[in-house]
Simulated assay, not measured.
Amino acid sequence: MSLPRTATTFAPPVMEARRWLDGVRFTEERPLINVSQAAPVAPPPEALRRRIAELAMDLPEAHLYGPVLGLPELRAEVAAQFSTAYGGAIAPGQVAITSGCNQAFATAMMTLAGEGDEVILPTPWYFNHKMWLDMQGLRAVPLATGAGLLPDPGAAEALITPRSRAIVLVTPNNPGGVEYPAATVAGFAALARRHGLLLVIDETYRDFDSRDGAPHDLFADPDWADHLIQLYSFSKAYRLTGHRVGAMIASQSRLAQAERFLDTVTICPNQLGQHAALWGMRHLGDWLAGERREILDRRATISDQLPKIAARGWELMGVGAYFAYLRHPFDIASDDLARRLVREAHVLTLPGTMFMPEGSRDGGRQMRIAFANVDRAGIAALFDRLAAFAP
């Protein structure tokens, strides 16, 4: 008897990590420092919450089914703003709104691959990407990254087989934090075009990229839709995590296929969340710029605090957006280390084993720090605890 699809992959890592807190007593003097999850823990800004409340009371259609591919005004706003930001041409009909970016990824995979096909994922990978591929019956082909956690198009080309359907990039990267150079992204786009593959580029954290201007020029290619799918999340930009609003930008023919999947799964995205995202895009530009500055300041704090643990043998492999990715110096697997850090240092983080193929020795030496919800003082305390930890 064959296994159900949900039994073919691993348990949700964030939920597993939270179970490590069971039975551990934290104190006022030594509270838990939680750097396990990247999602914002604060609610949306007050102005946006008030707008959501107004919509809930005054817009009856916000409580009803809407178009499967999303609110037309939001699709048009994404197309207009992203066309300007990337110096390209994106039409509203090339934008679909989804119930979060994870659903955008699942939708993209459903439109481009079938049972037994292959998708190339750079490692360390975003675990939910791997989980979905497992549950769809697709083979995730790991692409080891080089110095600075950067993937190489040449190394990816060596992995392409007749079953290859797509290459996935996440930039700024989760879990590594690394911002992929425009030349690297362009190299992967050329590779995908040359081999008839899709380049799926997840830019969930684009609003917190440290670089000014467009991070790549893929949309400047008039034929971009032939080989490119972009994914985006409104959750991080406007703290709308509970409303589940994401986006998928692709060809209109691909979105026609996506509509079949989305109609079956959710019928339509969250209506209140879509209106909130639209209002945020039109009114919260300055506020979002301030959020970006705060994240960049916390990123700088990571670098400032690094000497405390570098002296103990820790190594910073990548940093950016919401994440710092570290190599630890201990003769202990990172998953065991993560459990001990909860009990002995009152720090909850995720081990590299959750972002790498099963049995990976590299994953056993790596840790992810999600610092977006920890201020300067909290980051300093985190590094003090890591520096003092001795297994």
Rank of each mutant, 00 (worst) to 15 (best):
I302H: 00
I309M: 02
A256R: 13
G176K: 04
K236L: 03
Q366L: 01
R193K: 15
A147P: 11
H129A: 06
D263Q: 14
Q37P: 00
R376P: 00
A80K: 14
A79C: 11
H195C: 04
I52N: 02
D134Y: 07
L169N: 03
N102E: 13
Y322K: 07
M354L: 07
F371Q: 01
I120Q: 08
A237E: 14
W132D: 14
P351T: 02
Y205T: 07
R51S: 07
W287E: 12
E28G: 11
M15S: 09
L197N: 02
R343Q: 15
L278F: 06
E358S: 09
R260A: 15
A289H: 06
I369C: 03
V168N: 01
A85W: 09
S334V: 00
D384Q: 10
L231M: 14
G363S: 05
D117L: 11
A96S: 11
A372S: 14
E315Q: 14
A380V: 07
V265W: 12
A220W: 00
I160E: 10
F10K: 07
T184L: 02
F82I: 05
A380Y: 00
R193I: 04
S303N: 04
L112A: 07
R30L: 12
D304R: 15
R25V: 13
P43N: 03
Q230R: 14
L262R: 06
P172Q: 06
D362F: 03
R49S: 10
L150S: 08
R211Y: 01
L341R: 08
T349D: 09
E16Q: 11
A189G: 14
I332K: 04
M57Y: 04
L341T: 03
V265M: 11
Y86I: 02
S253Q: 14
Y205H: 12
L149S: 13
A276W: 01
L386S: 00
G196C: 08
L112D: 00
V185H: 09
R75L: 09
D226P: 01
L149K: 12
A80W: 09
M110P: 01
